[in-house]
Design a protein around this nucleic acid. Sequence first.
DNA 1: AACAACCTCAACCGCATCAGA
DNA 2: GTCTGATGCGGTTGAGGTTGT
Length: 212
Amino acid sequence: MAHTRADGSIIQKQRPAMNELNRGVWTAEEDRKLAETIGIYGAKQWTIIAAKAELNRCAKSCRLRWMNYLRPNIKRGNMSDQEEDLIIRMHKLLGNRYESNDIGLIFIGLWSLIAARLPGRTDNEIKNYWNCHLSKKKLDKGTFNVAGISTQEMRPKSEQTGEEETIIRPSNSSSGEQGSESVFDVNDFFDFSNEKPSTLEWVTKFLEFGSS
DNA sequence: AACAACCTCAACCGCATCAGA
DNA sequence: GTCTGATGCGGTTGAGGTTGT
């Protein structure tokens, strides 16, 4: 079974078949059938798509393949510094903060929230990138320092000094204004107006928690 | 050249949430 | 209000690739 990598090279991969459903790597023919079916029925009703495509794949598998690989405008290749910076910022602000509180809503939609703000990137890709590159970088150094901003400096002042503060101060601005009040405002940075209600509620709780 | 260790990333799994009956 | 199937998410796996010795 062949599979195409992001750079166009072919890899071979196979998992043992379970039940009567096809599993493992998608073939070019399966991709073609799936794309064709989605072209007819749209990328929404996955149980119908899975049945109509006659791929012997479950709906979840079809959805995953479309979302992570076949979907138009998927951007592949290395993450830019800006993209990496954004991932780190958002993970720092959303992910780690929620690890340390007791609201009980940990990491809900984190990767998809980040992916939504990185056009062409998938949540799976960002998650993989974090696990492979960034979390390791964090472990190695204790802090990040991407695009001139370390996560120590990204921490709300309240975490650093115990004072009340919800702003983040880049260590050096591009304008070269040493020590200027170039404030990173969480409310400006995150526009969640298009998120579904449950996510919006979660973000609201998060922001309320961070500022209380 | 051969082997081992590590890295990458597509795909699967289990669970939570959503939406419609 | 409840039930049930569909959908979406993060965590994890594991085969193939890459790098180091």
